[in-house]
Design a protein around this nucleic acid. Sequence first.
DNA 1: ATATTTTTGTACCACATCGCATATAAATGC
DNA 2: GCATTTATATGCGATGTGGTACAAAAATAT
Lengths: 203, 203
Amino acid sequence: MRNGTKIAKEPRPRGRPRGFITSEVLERVRDVFLAKGFAAASLDELCAAAGLNRPSLYAAFGDKEQLYISMLRHIGQGSVEAMDAILSGPDPIERRLGRLYKGAIDIYTRPPNPPGCIIVGTATVEATSHPAIGAAANQILASFEKAFERGFIASHLQPAPSPAERASMAAAILTATGIRARLGVPAADLRAFTKSMIPVICR
Amino acid sequence: MRNGTKIAKEPRPRGRPRGFITSEVLERVRDVFLAKGFAAASLDELCAAAGLNRPSLYAAFGDKEQLYISMLRHIGQGSVEAMDAILSGPDPIERRLGRLYKGAIDIYTRPPNPPGCIIVGTATVEATSHPAIGAAANQILASFEKAFERGFIASHLQPAPSPAERASMAAAILTATGIRARLGVPAADLRAFTKSMIPVICR
DNA sequence: ATATTTTTGTACCACATCGCATATAAATGC
DNA sequence: GCATTTATATGCGATGTGGTACAAAAATAT
């Protein structure tokens, strides 16, 4: 790793160091956004949850829209990594899908968090008024679909439907599950739903 | 229809008659709610769109939440009727489903309205803060699923998956389509998606 | 030690919001 | 005619909103 005088330990930046960690702040404001949605989440609540004052939040993330998008991207990135980890396993695709859906339903319904998927559950409504939010959410959903597609490509299924079509369907099931969870459908019903869809997707 | 002295023409109620028609008001506020969502829609905008003053709106519908729920129920009822009309046709279920999805995508993407389904697109985010909204949306989605189920029962498909399972899947596809439409997916892509799903649902 | 740079904390502003109080208008019952 | 009932119109006040100015604090560079 030696390149000239650069040392691994990068030097501290110039001024006063930050009193927070970016990923932690993003995960805390996520709870507020998940509970209230983007529009109804006030800066007071966001600052309180983040443990930051308003100027600090603004200096670090920009306005509310940019903060929200940063949070979305952070969650989306972690989700894709988790999906890849599950979908790249050695067992049959049906089992991998089952584990993925089960994990998602856990996240969507586990107290004390408000139920539902934050992406399709809170970003969707803002897409019209805040196109950047819609675009970010769309990118994330597309990356989910890509993750599914990688999983199907790595499996040995009949050529039709294509991996892309199966991925599109699997992503649609995940989307609908996230919506239904937020609307109050019990976790057991969601599990039964996804379980019944897996053989249809993998036929 | 003759029962005693009751005449078909019911007598006008006592005071000053209303200067508006309920269904028209609900359809006008729908445009605002669809564009901004529930939380971001202000009473000023709603009143302007409805052509009513604030006290009139409150007297007729109650507060913003009740107005929104009335609007949702109105739209949901009309949607179920439209679904039944399409799904009860004489041609094969594949064609009926195709017409239904095509009609839905038209509604979801036709200018000048903002894109997406108002139910899954705007009610979902409020379900946590406004349980009554979540419950109403859930009821409507359940009635959609029932409509699908009636369509599948009236068709002659293999017993597995059951009509209820097929209906659940068809409804999930419709939900995901409404979400994707709002996030900006072009109508052509949505049509290709639903078209590819129909044979999977009806196999 | 002093200067520089970045973060933090307090206070603030202009503005929009919801819900209501009050007054007027338009219909019916007697 | 007059009283009653309901709907409409105007306007207001208390509260909360997103965003920012300014000074103090905490680190590094020289």
